[in-house]
Write a protein that binds this DNA or RNA. Sequence first.
DNA 1: GCGGAAACGGAGAGTCGGTCTCCGCTTATT
DNA 2: AATAAGCGGAGACCGACTCTCCGTTTCCGC
Lengths: 216, 216
Amino acid sequence: MSTPSAPDARPLRADAERNRQRLIASARDLFASRGLDVTLDDVARHAGVGVGTAYRRFANRSELVAAVLDTAVQRVVERAEQALVLDDPWEAFEQFFLAATADFAENRGLRQILLEGGHGTGVAFDIASERLSPAVEGLIVRAQEAGQLRTDLEPSDFPLIQLMLGAVTERSRDVAPDLWRRYVTLFLDGLRTRREFPTPLAAPALTNDEFDRSLT
Amino acid sequence: MSTPSAPDARPLRADAERNRQRLIASARDLFASRGLDVTLDDVARHAGVGVGTAYRRFANRSELVAAVLDTAVQRVVERAEQALVLDDPWEAFEQFFLAATADFAENRGLRQILLEGGHGTGVAFDIASERLSPAVEGLIVRAQEAGQLRTDLEPSDFPLIQLMLGAVTERSRDVAPDLWRRYVTLFLDGLRTRREFPTPLAAPALTNDEFDRSLT
DNA sequence: GCGGAAACGGAGAGTCGGTCTCCGCTTATT
DNA sequence: AATAAGCGGAGACCGACTCTCCGTTTCCGC
């Protein structure tokens, strides 16, 4: 389960291991809610340990980021691969699209690492994006061949669209964290080949007051 | 024409006025291309004057921002009011939508001030947004009453959608500054009440290579 | 329960990137 | 030519961050 960075170092002392777990847990929280640029001091404070302890365990931020975001990245990949085995091509595409957007909405760090090139953390999840890209491409092509997805959509559009939805969440998270649901619908309606009527939007618009408060 | 900050101060010395113009021109360039957070040192260097000169003329960044962005903001407002007098409600909406997006795409500072609350510059264009909001609302309502725009779109959606498009431009400006054209089409197709077939996207997708290079 | 290795905490050194001031020199204007 | 206005840019100042160092505390095997 809990493997220290080096493959076969002697196990950590009990308190050290405990603190390590606390650090990871705190980092997970903070990266998700505030993004990858929280300071290590913040992570340490949140974990109730000293900065020194944080730096003894993780040489730099990249190490911590990699340790923490790995499973979140993995989950997105799995979502895509699971959708790929569904029967209905459009439903598969839509389901993944929604699930991924939800994942990104909940985790700012995940957005940054997968959609924005890691924000200078020097961390890259090549492995994941090398499994993710083909899966996404598969979902797209299949839905296109079934005549349900506009044929001019290309795989590289997916991250860009997610980036756009991320911009909404970035803005609204404190006043209306679900606002993205409103705009996914809009995108899906734009992506479908034909539709008689618009799908009702899945979340209310920002009120004027919410809008003002969303301007940091 | 060239009014110094104070209503009726004695006119500036010739060289001073010249430098003031240079500073404004440089600020316009830099705010548009790199956003409101360029340093005043940068602006001064770009204008070929010393920092001291910059600070003598503009007490702080806000003053410069206000002086420089005023006309750009004004233009967006005018675009909306001009569209409002067009006959076809959908065409009016679409025309303004496209024109505004183009304005935002060309001017990063404008995006920041109008869409992102000024980025801590402390500058607010109340006047403009108090003329802009009603105009936008008018365009929306009219297109909805004509049955051409989905009825659940609300005025506050406009800045959010522009924010999303801005995220694309923010990302692609160095490798494909026109990428936004691709996604406006998608939005418009999502906003229209009914449509048989998708409108062809107005710009090519990012190639894999471009995509990689777009990750800062 | 003791001794030494391991781990801890957090003050603070070092860096960076920015804002803004100060004052000796230069230039426009009369 | 005298003088007020303006210039430039070195550097004081600031805040935010990263990471180190070492005196103190804790764990753990004997």
